[in-house]
């Protein structure tokens, strides 16, 4: 009974994956004859400044967003636990951002963060700040994307943290309180270590999305201004579908896949290390 699903997966996932690896070993551009070139595409990649620029941007966006979302998500998750608030209307508000289409997120960002006519700069001006260029400034574009993503995904992390927290044994917290541990001490010595496996789970889920970040960047900036937001996935897409350098694009995509799988394996090790 698994057969139909397996056949589908073989045709749509496994075969294309193998094909992509094969493509990455070829020099293949549109209109030209494909030619086997071994690891030439990967050699070119290592020497390509745009690749390293994309690599740096991908890592920056990943670390920045992950840090913001884990910190804010833990804070919000524990806040929800204290208030028993993840119900009804509040629950709807928490789920909505990460269920919205990325295109909608991008469109809202374009309108709200417009340097001239956006309401964000108008609000900043009320408190004597700005104006900022947000997505239009090479210096702030990655930070802006990270903040938009944090807006969208912090509730997701918070709900995971809340679930993890509610499953923790109560008596440990009571014992700590009786022993006179302060709030900060309780958080650092008890809550955080006990929540560590939950946080690693949240980190894996977010990392997989963040390392291959595409939608919101492509929708708002297409990788610009200049190359300031051309992360690896954007670079691979543009090489493949705008410049039609199939072989080189495939090499970029295979490399990015390896980075994502590598990070998942690394997190699996961390997960075992923080298990209790």
């Amino acid at each position: 009974m698994v057969a139909p699903a397996l056949l589908f997966a073989a045709a749509m996932i496994v075969m294309p994956f193998g094909w992509a690896i094969w493509l990455s070993l070829q020099e293949s551009v549109i209109g030209g004859e494909a030619r086997f070139v071994g690891l030439d595409n990967y050699r070119r990649l290592v020497a390509d400044g745009e690749f390293w620029n994309g690599f740096r941007l991908t890592l920056t966006l990943w670390l920045l967003s992950l840090a913001l979302q884990l910190v804010a998500g833990t804070w919000l998750g524990l806040l929800l636990a204290r208030l028993h608030a993840a119900r009804g209307l509040i629950r709807t508000v928490l789920i909505s951002p990460f269920m919205l289409p990325p295109v909608v997120i991008g469109m809202m960002a374009i309108v709200i963060l417009d340097p001239g006519l956006g309401v964000a700069n108008w609000l900043l001006a009320r408190i004597g700040l700005g104006p900022l260029l947000f997505l239009a400034d090479p210096e702030t574009v990655i930070l802006t994307v990270a903040l938009v993503d944090t807006w969208q995904w912090t509730p997701f992390v918070a709900l995971i943290v809340l679930g993890g927290y509610l499953s923790l044994p109560r008596d440990v917290f009571e014992a700590a309180e009786i022993d006179g541990a302060g709030t900060v001490q309780r958080f650092l010595r008890i809550t955080l270590p006990l929540l560590a496996p939950t946080l690693v789970t949240a980190a894996v889920l977010r990392s997989v999305d963040l390392l291959r970040f595409f939608d919101v960047i492509y929708i708002t900036t297409q990788g610009g201004p200049g190359h300031a937001s051309t992360t690896l996935n954007i670079l691979a897409y543009r090489r493949g579908f705008e410049f039609f350098e199939f072989g080189y694009a495939a090499a970029l995509m295979v490399t990015l896949s390896a980075i994502v799988f590598g990070s998942v394996l690394a997190f699996a090790r961390i997960r075992r290390a923080v298990a209790w």
Binding site: A9, P16, F17, V208, F214, N233, M253, V260
Partner: peptide
Amino acid sequence: ATLFARMAPGTLFLLPWL
């Protein structure tokens, strides 16, 4: 195995699909 599909960047499959 299905997680694998969830992890790989969509662009990777898109090229052979096209």
